[in-house]
């Protein structure tokens, strides 16, 4: 017996959605297992301090220029935008508060996370992917070294620790960017602007941003390592791994940002 055509098509649609859902769930499960194994290696010796340090410097030190520029310009734009917008209802005085809250709670961690996703997620995926397609990961196995412990664990730890430090700097520079525009262009006095900045700032504003940063650092390095680890098919495979590392970690950052904000600021 044959189902009528519209029903057939509707079932095709549900099947397609189901297939996609299963694919996503399977992927998420595999990534979660991968992360769990990497974390378990952080708790058991041997530890690779040298590799952790190398990854840490790569993430924290070499991302500093990009993150700093992003933060300064974001602070400047925020000041300008909020000033012109708020002038419509005579609330120009709130510029400093808006800048500092937006930067510490939201834009510092998110924008730094996205910049680091572009730099580090891509670099890790390309490096580990190349190691995969040139048999270097298999070689580690034959040389008494667990590749998860050697390649993935130190990078995850470095990302999780380095990101909050980067965001502290991004917070400071973002506020400075706002202060620059506020005092040079919008006519605030330096003292009044800084007073307004700190008057309404709570420790939780900064800390919540740093928690987000740690999560984003973990996600970026995890997706970079995962995509590289799963890479196949020569140069093209490594290219695909790099792309999906950046895309997936960027989307995860934005999605997790919502989840974390909802968890931390709604009671």
């Amino acid at each position: 017996m044959k189902a009528p055509e519209p029903l057939d098509r509707a079932l095709d649609l549900t099947a397609a959605i189901g297939r996609a859902a299963i694919l996503v769930l399977r992927g998420a499960g595999a990534v979660a297992l991968f992360a769990a194994e990497a974390i378990s290696h952080l708790l058991r010796p041997p530890f690779y301090g040298r590799l952790f340090l190398k990854a840490f410097i790569e993430i924290a030190w070499f991302s500093l220029p990009v993150v700093a520029l992003t933060a300064v310009f974001t602070g400047m734009v925020l000041a300008l935008q909020s000033y012109t917008g708020f002038a419509r209802f005579n609330a120009e005085g709130a510029v400093a508060n808006v800048v500092v809250l937006s930067i510490t709670r939201e834009l510092g961690p998110v924008l730094a996370g996205l910049m680091v996703a572009g730099r580090i997620g891509a670099a890790f995926a390309a490096e580990i992917g190349t190691m995969r397609v040139t048999d270097q990961i298999d070689a580690l196995n034959t040389l008494s070294t667990n590749p998860m412990k050697y390649l993935v664990a130190p990078r995850l730890l470095a990302g999780t620790i380095a990101m909050p430090l980067l965001v502290v700097i991004a917070d400071i520079l973002g506020v400075m960017g706002g202060w620059l525009i506020g005092t040079q262009q919008l006519g605030f006095s330096s003292g009044a602007y800084l007073k307004a900045t700190f008057d309404f700032l709570e420790a939780w504003d900064v800390i919540s941003g740093l928690i987000k940063a740690a999560v984003f650092g973990f996600v970026v390095t995890l997706m970079g390592c995962w995509c590289g680890y799963q890479s196949g098919g020569g140069a093209q495979g490594v290219g695909r791994a790099t792309t999906s590392a950046v895309v997936s970690s960027s989307i995860l950052i934005l999605a997790l940002d919502y989840v974390l904000t909802a968890m931390m600021f709604t009671r």
């Binding site: 190691m131 040139t134 048999d135 270097q136 298999d138 070689a139 196995n141 034959t142 008494s144």
Partner: peptide, 18 residues
């Protein structure tokens, strides 16, 4: 792992750590 510790392997393209 102890068994693998006593095995050596020369890979086709070297697979040296660059």
């Amino acid at each position: 792992e102890a068994v693998n510790d006593r095995i050596g392997m020369l890979f086709q393209n070297g697979a040296l750590f660059d």
